[in-house]
Design a protein around this nucleic acid. Structure first.
Length: 834
RNA sequence: GCCGAAGUGGCGGAACGGUAUACGCGGCGGUCUCAAAAACCGCUGGGGGUAGCCCUGUGUGGGUUCGAAUCCCACCUUCGGCACCA
């Protein structure tokens, strides 16, 4: 009985402490502010704002079903920076949207009998809800969903404009067909190496089909010019390699006993005297005509093998270079020499002319081939100090021309030009630039995409659908059968139409457009929501475009990011836009991995669900942890304990602001105040530099250090000063872009005006941030021996004197003589003794 | 094979050519508690010493420099991209 009393007392005093210390309840706080922000339209950017505009954009997500951690990793830091720029005084637009066309929706229709529209829009609804929980400054009224007829109407409109301006065309071409997806793919969508479909990893097969193309190659040279944009070197290199520009000469080889000539392309006209054979691609159209009867069987056998290989796999560049002689001879135009003609699969039909001159001494592939076929390997470019002996391997560098008729003795770069001139002069060839880049294949044999607005008429041929008849709608009652044929092909109502030109019977194009078409211009549409006279309202478009800061993954380097640049340049030439590049600055974030360091995937069971975290630790902690985990461009593994550390940090910020100040006796010293102001202003400087440079991890580390200081300072009399309020306000303002809900909540509790997200970013005062005492490191022969605390501005002489008086310095110098003293003002002094 | 990026504590990662390991996690010790959890405080690269301290240490080996994680050369490893483009 008696002993229970102290216990009860203790219990009640603990309750008292509990009452005075309010808990940080992130889930409650976030839903409160998300509702208020949305109701207030806090993030809806207007064009009549006096501040300079800033268009911040993060790559739009595909409507796969759920917002996963990868989306958060891409979007949360991007949002934080958009918020920061807003506080810096920009009129920031940060719009959301969905890439909503594509095969998964159609596969769901075939497998689960859900209409692609329903499947997609259900996903959009779910993802919208999840996006809202991030607490990002999404400008919802600008949202675009690419499968919405109000959107794809304009995708079709762009197609018509490209058609009108000769940038869209239909052609028969050998294309890559995915037997699983039952559609053709763009070259970019075929994984090189194993030649599989990038989506389902089924080996693709070659088919000759009539397809729709965009003339992106018209812009090849302009796409190589990155001078107007600040994009990462990595992306620029990848695009440059993909475009693959090479300068050379195209010339004719006469064929013995035939009036026909074959054209070859070379980047090394300076080596033309070294040709000892010529090669045609196995698919070259002249092969049959030139093949001698006694070689026919062998040639056909080889063609068959080559075709099979081309379809299945052509794994390696190291494969033996094989080929067969076709029994014909070509004549070298510069010296009349007769050289045997081969077919070999190392020559590709879809690059250059599909035929080459074989110069084994100066090309590694030709060298291998010549060795196998026992062909001569004449040297025509002499390396420095060449001994006149046959080369042990192909020499591909520059040198002095030899055995090259009147060109012998010339340095090879000069010979290159001289021979090119000569061929042009004699009319047998001319300079030519070749590209690896091909025209963009945009047609797909699927339902779930924007229909290509063209009509086939027996009388008029190909006729574009008139603008006023757009959109060509996808029929809602299409049947989704696992036949492999596009549902549009089987839908009479869609298929049959009247010819817009003659009014006679017409048949609609059933191909739909590549989804990269939709994503090539979505950033334009965000500027003009609801505009119905065109894809972009000229005034609003001019105000917002181009995008100032784009962020997204590197995986789109040669697809989306190249297409959208092409799109912008084409629109400029058509007169729709007046700028050259869609996005001025680009930042590529890395990939967030599972705790095991592997890519997050359901099959690995290492998926971290953001929804669970939002409902437990809160959106702010999740956002902050993703930014704290490491450099944003590096990505990295998730760590369950790591996020708890970030949560503790936010909890301690909460405590610093909300806990009642304890009764503290005494008045603060000048030094206490100065030191608080110093760390405040130093932190503002650090944090500002970091967020400018996308260094969110060190930015948060700086805020943690600052908060740790404030926790201790709160126990001292400085807590009663203006410097303290300045510090706490700065802390919240700097935290607001990272943890927008916590920032807003605490800002309100401090009595700050709504909203913290409309306040100015704090500025630092260099004078307040300046140190009064500096630590000078004393080294002897480059090794740290002592430290000196000196007042700012102490002259070198005095520092030297203090240093030489240091017992430790003296000990390590001992009886050696001092050779020199290096002094880095205010930082370090190194005594060199020997 | 070619091109590019990167290798730092037990872990994620910090460090304008100038105090290596900030910040966080984990671990150890402590306070509080009947106890535990939470929270808070302290310690925490390795080796040596009772201690003041000393030695050593940023993938490996060299070099430049008063001084190198940082710059240069070679090599090893990892990750990306490209891979017959004439």
């Amino acid at each position: 009985m008696f002993s229970r009393i102290p216990g009860q007392l203790r219990k009640s005093s603990r309750e008292e402490v509990f009452m005075t210390r309010e808990k940080y309840e992130p889930v409650r706080i976030q839903s409160r502010w998300q509702k208020k922000w949305e109701a207030d339209g806090l993030y809806h950017a207007q064009e009549d704002d006096p501040h300079p505009k800033f268009y911040a954009l993060t790559m739009l997500p595909y409507t796969s079903g759920d917002l996963h951690m990868g989306h958060w990793y891409a979007m949360a830091p991007s949002d934080a920076r958009a918020r920061y720029l807003r506080m810096k005084g920009y009129n920031v637009m940060f719009p959301p949207g969905f890439d909503a066309f594509g095969l998964p929706a159609e596969n769901a229709a075939i497998n689960h009998h859900i209409h692609p529209y329903k499947w997609t829009m259900d996903n959009v609804a779910r993802m919208r809800g999840q996006l809202r929980t991030m607490g990002a400054m999404w400008d919802w009224p600008r949202e675009a969903v690419t499968c919405d007829p109000a959107y794809y109407k304009w995708t079709q409109w762009f197609f018509l404009k490209f058609w009108e301006h000769g940038l869209a065309y239909r052609a028969m071409a050998p294309v890559d067909w995915c037997p699983h997806c039952k559609t053709v793919l763009a070259r970019e969508q075929v994984l090189e190496g194993d030649r599989t479909c990038e989506r389902c990893h089924t080996p693709v097969v070659k088919k000759d089909l009539e397809q729709w193309f965009f003339r992106i190659t018209n812009y090849a040279d302009e796409l190589l010019d990155f001078s107007r944009i600040q994009w990462p070197d990595r992306v620029r290199t990848m695009q440059t390699n993909w475009i693959g520009r090479s300068e050379g000469v195209e010339f004719d080889l006469s064929i013995e006993g035939s009036p026909k000539k074959i054209r070859v392309f070379t980047t090394r006209p300076d080596t033309v005297f070294g040709m000892s054979f010529a090669v045609l691609a196995p698919e070259h159209p002249f092969v049959h005509e030139f093949t001698a009867p006694e070689h026919r069987a062998e040639v056909e056998d080889y063609e068959y093998k080559a075709r099979r290989l081309a379809e299945i796999d052509r794994l390696s560049a190291e494969r033996e270079r094989e080929g067969v002689f076709i029994g014909a001879y070509a004549l070298n135009p510069v010296n009349g020499e007769r050289v045997p003609l081969y077919i070999a699969d190392y020559v590709l039909m879809n690059y250059g002319t599909g035929a080459i001159m074989g110069v084994p001494a100066h090309d590694e592939r030709d060298y291998d081939f010549a060795r196998r076929q026992h062909l001569p390997i004449p040297t025509v470019i002499a390396p420095a100090n060449w001994d006149g002996q046959p080369l042990p391997e192909a020499y591909t560098g520059q040198g002095t021309m030899v055995n090259s008729g009147k060109f012998s003795g010339l340095p090879s770069p000069q010979g290159w030009q001289a021979i090119a001139d000569e061929m042009e002069h004699l009319g047998i060839g001319e300079r030519k630039v070749n590209y690896r880049l091909h025209d963009w294949l945009i047609s797909r044999q699927r339902y779930w995409g924007a229909p290509i607005p063209m009509v086939y008429c027996d009388h008029c041929g190909l006729v574009p659908v008139p603008e006023e008849q757009l959109p060509v709608l996808l029929p809602e009652d299409a049947e989704f059968l696992p036949t492999g044929d596009s549902p549009l092909k089987l839908h009479q109502g869609f298929l049959s139409t009247t010819c817009p030109r003659c009014g006679g019977p017409g048949r609609r194009e059933t191909d739909t457009m590549d989804t990269f078409m939709c994503s090539s211009w979505y950033h334009m549409r965000y500027t003009s929501p609801g505009y119905d006279k065109g894809p972009i309202d000229p005034q609003r478009g001019r105000y917002w475009l181009p995008v100032d800061q784009y962020t997204g993954g590197i995986e789109h380097a040669v697809m989306h990011l190249l297409y959208t640049r092409f799109f912008t340049k084409a629109c400029r030439d058509i007169g729709i836009l007046d700028h050259d590049e869609p996005m001025l600055r680009l930042f590529n974030q890395g990939t967030i991995l599972g705790e095991d360091g592997e890519k997050m995937s359901k099959s690995r069971g290492n998926v971290v669900n953001p929804d669970d975290l939002v409902n437990s630790l809160g959106a702010d902690t999740t956002r902050a942890y993703l930014m704290f985990i490491g450099p944003w461009d590096a990505g990295g593994p998730w760590n369950t304990h790591g996020i708890e550390g970030v949560h503790r940090f936010l909890q301690r910020v909460w405590d610093v602001v909300t806990r009642p100040v304890r009764a503290i006796a005494g008045i603060p010293t000048d030094e206490q105040v100065a030191s608080l102001r110093r760390i405040t202003h130093k932190t503002i400087r650090r944090v500002t530099d970091d967020i400018e440079a996308f260094r969110f991890n060190t930015m948060i580390a700086a805020l943690m250090e600052f908060n740790n200081y404030l926790i201790k300072a709160k126990e001292t009399p400085v807590v009663l000063t203006d410097a303290w309020s300045e510090a706490v306000r700065a802390l919240l303002l700097m935290l607001a872009p990272i943890a927008p809900h916590l920032g807003e909540e605490l800002w309100e509790r401090l009595g700050g005006p709504y909203s913290i997200h409309q306040q100015s970013w704090p500025e630092w005062d260099e004078a307040a941030a300046a140190d009064e005492l500096l630590t000078v490191v004393l080294q002897v022969n480059g090794r740290v021996r002592d430290r000196l605390s000196i007042p700012v501005g102490l002259g070198e002489e005095q520092v030297r004197e203090l240093a030489m008086n240091s017992p430790k310095v003296q000990h390590f110098v001992a009886d050696q003589s001092i050779v020199k003293i290096v002094y880095v003002p205010g930082k370090l002094l190194n005594v060199v003794a020997r």
